[in-house]
Design a protein around this nucleic acid. Structure first.
Lengths: 239, 239
DNA sequence: TCAAAAGTGTTTCACATACACCCATGT
DNA sequence: ACATGGGTGTATGTGAAACACTTTTGA
């Protein structure tokens, strides 16, 4: 068997929405290399562990939720990164996993972390390794996937209002959506939202209804970030 | 550094369209394990090689195009597979790359292959390792990406007709598209197709115009596989 | 002259946008 | 009463679907 050997790590891009802004879970490294610097949480794949198993194990560790019951969110593989110079210790391939979770309590640092915290994705400074690239790719994946899937609900608690769901879209896309058209769009898409009998009182205006996630996973037609009329095709229009 | 070590391979899902059907490039293994069985082409990542470099190197080797000039197609990372039992030799992580290429001449087998051939994707039998899974994931990625990108043109030669492009969509999606609406759609999307002065004579009807790829990479709005009216949301509609 | 394939015009319908308007609550 | 946010109704525009029709070639 030719080829040299790699250590294989899994890194998590754990995204959530807190106070109307998209946040990512970061740790302060407690070991070399990059000791004291901020990084994405992660760890090595153990013997007899599959990648997705490593991902869920790390997600439970870093969110401080050993049973996994509280994290009802979404976990998917994002991609692998193996630039020969990405880790000073040697050849390390990192498989990035993207996690979308509801707003959780403050995280408890994992074993190799000095501290951990939620940080707004547009205020993240330099990160260890190539983790800025991983984070950028993860945010981009999240932004595009909520267009044509129902994954935005993964950022919400089990029961939520239409406005809470709209705040998720607005936070991830950093854009404003018309509340009235959004309401009609999500409530008229079969299988997206299941109404509950509960109305939330205590707020200022008319009490909103609570919804649960429905069985639908894709959105046809997709949710649109903005008008179709802008030319997103990049360069000079032809003819 | 905890965690055990992996061999890291890159496997290619090379797709093309031949005689109106989607084909994949397969090799007959010339080494153990799985000697004599069909598999996806691949090879190990060499020292100081990045993943995408391994992918392009292998693509040139397997297509018999050492300069890479003929393969003007598309190469992107699909995902990584690392089930502990996927390779009897031990712990091997495979990074799958998806390649979309124009119809090429018959391939020349790479170093570790006894033979290689283009096979229709819906007539592929059992494959070595977990390569059936890789192939299914690659075909699914190709099917969805040509909806909202201009990547279908990667299956075409540098100059092609609108009908040739439509045959690509029909082969990948195994569906029929209205030639007249397709024509208007692709020619009116800014930056997708650039007309050339050339008309192709020799066919039976009115000579079609040749086009080249334009600078556009995304399709807004997307190409639709079939009518919007069918409910693709899966399960029982709510409320 | 006819068949065949390329390409255009037109009607209809789905749905996004924009926004007027009503509903139900806290203060 | 009134402000505030939830939710519905409706006019307008864009683009997909369906298909009649014209154009341009080979046989």
């Amino acid at each position: 068997m030719r080829g040299n050997l790699f250590a294989v790590a899994v890194n998590l891009i754990v995204l959530t929405v807190r106070s109307h802004r998209l946040h990512v879970l970061l740790i302060e490294r407690g070991e070399q290399p990059f000791l004291g610097e901020w990084a994405l949480p992660g760890g090595f794949v153990q013997p007899d562990e599959d990648l997705v198993h490593t991902g869920t194990r790390l997600l439970r560790e870093e969110t401080g939720d050993p049973t996994g019951d509280a994290v009802v969110g979404h976990l998917e593989q994002l991609g692998s990164y193996a630039d020969p110079s990405r880790d000073p210790r040697g050849r390390v391939l990192s498989v990035a996993y993207l996690a979308l979770v509801p707003d959780l309590p403050e995280p408890t640092p994992g074993s190799d972390a000095a501290a951990s915290a939620w940080r707004p994705v547009d205020e993240v400074g330099p990160l260890a390794f190539d983790h800025e690239q991983l984070l950028a790719d993860g945010v981009e994946r999240a932004r595009s996937k909520i267009e044509y899937t129902t994954l935005a609900a993964s950022f919400c608690p089990p029961e939520f209002t239409v406005t809470e769901l709209r705040r998720v879209y607005e936070a991830v896309w950093r854009s404003e959506l018309d509340p009235r058209n959004f309401q009609r769009k999500v409530t008229s898409t079969d299988g997206f939202l299941v109404p509950t009998p509960t109305l939330v009182t205590g707020g200022r205006g008319r009490p909103p209804r609570l919804f649960r996630r429905g069985p639908a996973t894709v959105l046809h037609p997709p949710m649109l970030r903005e008008s179709h009329r802008v030319n997103r095709n990049g360069d000079a229009p032809e003819q």
